[in-house]
């Protein structure tokens, strides 16, 4: 892996964001809208009910912010690839001395930058508007964050592989893929709420489930579950390997079928 090449590819995206402030707005606009809606809704319910609601607010807002880590990481990979397609630059990149691993590493880097910007803005807003401090999760935030980011990268590679195979017609997958798994990874509710019960096994086979379950445990008991963390890390390694293999396989197939140039110049 050549870090000069990776940094050059990231630099291209930095130039893009600096030159197009509207792209920064896109990074922040939807998460802020979601935060406002969820925040006001939970506050309204809290004012009109009694019991355990303050904790539920914490769950929901924490889950919302952490879900955005997956989504932004996935978008970082898929949109970075699509940027090259939209600007007809893909061929220039693929005929330059850029390894697939370097190309992917750069998209991961862009994903990380996107997450940092989004999470920073959301955390500040959640603290100011709802007195929810995401850093209340303490040092446990970092392993949660890292695991979700890796899950997002894996989903990003799968989205990109599908776009490579089916061309621009499959572009909407860049936005849709994370939502295929959202109902199953127990973002806003525990795994036990997923029905029928056999779906809970599917849920437990997905790495983000263990992160969201772990987050709820930290917020309710203050205890960090090393078991859930271990499951998340292990499953993420498997998911990254599977996603990387799918991407490499699709890339080879597009080269074999001669689809890459058609796709890149259409």
């Amino acid at each position: 892996m050549n870090f000069r090449v990776v940094s050059a590819l990231i630099l291209r995206h930095l130039f893009l964001y600096i030159r197009s402030p509207m792209r920064l707005v896109e990074l922040i606009f939807w998460p802020v809208v979601e935060l406002l809606i969820w925040g006001y809704l939970t506050m309204f319910i809290q004012e009109n009910t009694t019991g355990d609601f303050p904790r539920i607010i914490t769950y929901l807002l924490g889950a919302m912010i952490l879900w955005d880590v997956i989504f932004r990481a996935q978008q970082g990979v898929a949109i970075s690839f699509l940027e090259d397609v939209w600007t007809r630059n893909l061929l220039n990149v693929f005929v330059a001395p850029v390894r697939t691993s370097e190309f992917l590493a750069a998209t991961f880097g862009v994903g990380l930058l996107r997450i940092l910007i989004t999470v920073a803005v959301l955390s500040m807003m959640a603290l100011a508007l709802y007195s929810f401090n995401v850093f209340k999760l303490g040092w446990t935030l970092l392993p949660f964050f890292m695991n979700l980011m890796v899950s997002g990268w894996a989903l990003g590679m799968i989205s990109t592989a599908l776009i490579l195979r089916w061309g621009q017609a499959a572009e909407s997958l860049a936005w849709a893929v994370p939502f295929f798994i959202q109902p199953l990874v127990a973002v806003f509710y525990p795994v036990s709420a997923i029905k029928p019960e056999w779906l809970q096994s599917v849920s437990l086979a997905l790495p983000p489930t263990h992160v969201f379950e772990g987050m709820r445990e930290v917020l309710s008991t203050g205890v960090f579950s090393w078991e859930k963390f271990g499951w998340a890390v292990g499953l993420n390694i498997v998911f990254m390997a599977i996603a990387g293999s799918i991407f490499a396989w699709m890339l080879t197939m597009t080269r074999k079928r001669g689809l890459l140039t058609k796709f890149a110049t259409q």
Binding site: R12, R19, S20, T87, N89, L91, N92
Partner: peptide, 13 residues
């Protein structure tokens, strides 16, 4: 390589 059918990203200087 250079081709009439590819371009450098249009949104950068």
């Amino acid at each position: 390589f250079s081709s009439a059918y590819t371009s450098l990203p249009g949104n950068l200087l």
